[in-house]
C-alpha cells in the first residue's frame, strides 16, 4: 500500500514536468524540421494595406550562421526604383544587434540598432524564424492542448521568450504526425494578434527531413494588413562566407 501511494505521489509530482518535456520536445522537433540557416532564397511579398491597396516587393535573401552570430542579407529586387537597396542584419547574443542599410541611389550606408520593432519589420519576410531559431533554453514552452486544422489533429503550443518583459508571445499549431508548423498566432506587447498560415512545404535536397514553407500568409487582426509571401526559389548554401554579407560599392 505504501509503495502504491508513493508511486501515485511520484506520478502526480512528475506530471507537469512530463507535459513540459513533451511541449519542449514537440517544439524542438518542429523547429529542427525547419531549414533556417545557410541558405539563399528569392521571395515575393504581396502586401495589402489597411485601405486594401496592394504593393508587391521581391527580395533576394541570404541567411547564415557564423558561430553564435546570425546574419541575414536582404537585397530588394522589386519595386525597380528600390532595386539594390540592401539590408544586412547581424544578430549577436552577446552584443546588441545591428541593421545596416545601403541605398544605391546615394551610395550611402545607414546603421540602425536592431530594436525589436525594426527587427520585426525587416524580418517580416520570415515570421517563422522569430522563436524557432532560438535555443529552447531561452524560451518558455507550454502545451496548451490540441486543435483541429483541416480535420487533422495538431499540437497547440505557446512560446514566450524568458527574458521578454513586454508580454509578447506566440502560439504554434504543429502537425501531430509530421511536426510541421502549420500556423503561428503572434501577440505583440500591446496584445495585438497576427496569424501566419504556413503551407506548401518543400523538402530541402541534401538535408533529409528538413523542410521550408514556400507559402506564408500573415494577417494582422488589428488593422487587417495582409502579407502573402511566396518563396520563388530556395537553395541551401553551406558554402556561404562572412564576406558575402559585406555591403559593397558605395557611390562616393
Amino acid at each position: 500500500m505504501i509503495r502504491y501511494t508513493f508511486f501515485i505521489l511520484l506520478l502526480t509530482l512528475s506530471f507537469p514536468s512530463f507535459g513540459q518535456d513533451n511541449a519542449e520536445t514537440i517544439f524542438k522537433k518542429a523547429s529542427e524540421k525547419l531549414f533556417l540557416t545557410n541558405m539563399e532564397m528569392t521571395i515575393n511579398i504581396k502586401e495589402t494595406g489597411k485601405n486594401k491597396q496592394v504593393k508587391e516587393k521581391t527580395f533576394h535573401v541570404l541567411m547564415a550562421k557564423f558561430g553564435m552570430v546570425e546574419k541575414t542579407k536582404t537585397v530588394i529586387q522589386k519595386p525597380i526604383r528600390a532595386e539594390g537597396v540592401t539590408i544586412v542584419i547581424t544578430k549577436n547574443p552577446k552584443k546588441s544587434g545591428l541593421i545596416e542599410i545601403f541605398t544605391p541611389a546615394n551610395g550611402k550606408i545607414r546603421k540602425l540598432k536592431a530594436t525589436p520593432q525594426n527587427m520585426d519589420r525587416v524580418g517580416a519576410s520570415s515570421p517563422i524564424s522569430n522563436y524557432t531559431s532560438m535555443d529552447t533554453n531561452e524560451l518558455y514552452v507550454k502545451l496548451i492542448g490540441k486543435q483541429q486544422l483541416d480535420d487533422k489533429p495538431n499540437y497547440l503550443i505557446m512560446v514566450t521568450e524568458k527574458k521578454d518583459t513586454t508580454g509578447s508571445k506566440a502560439e504554434f499549431l504543429i502537425d501531430e504526425k509530421s511536426f510541421r508548423i502549420l500556423q503561428i498566432v503572434s501577440y505583440d506587447s500591446s496584445g495585438n494578434k497576427s496569424i501566419s498560415n504556413l503551407s506548401d512545404f518543400q523538402d530541402i535536397s541534401g538535408y533529409k527531413g528538413k523542410v521550408y514553407p514556400m507559402h506564408i500568409v500573415t494577417k494582422s487582426m488589428k488593422d487587417g494588413e495582409e502579407k502573402d509571401i511566396k518563396v520563388l526559389s530556395l537553395t541551401p548554401r553551406p558554402d556561404v562566407k562572412e564576406e558575402d554579407f559585406k555591403i559593397l560599392s558605395a557611390k562616393n
Binding site: 526604383r81 528600390a82 542599410i101 541605398t103 546615394n106 520593432q117 525587416v122
Partner: peptide, 18 residues
C-alpha cells in the same frame, strides 16, 4: 534630393524601419 530614385529609396528604407 534631386533624384526621384533616391527619394523613393529613402522612403522604402524608412518604411522597412517600421
Amino acid at each position: 534630393p534631386d533624384d526621384a530614385g533616391e527619394i523613393y529609396q529613402l522612403l522604402e528604407v524608412f518604411s522597412l524601419g517600421g
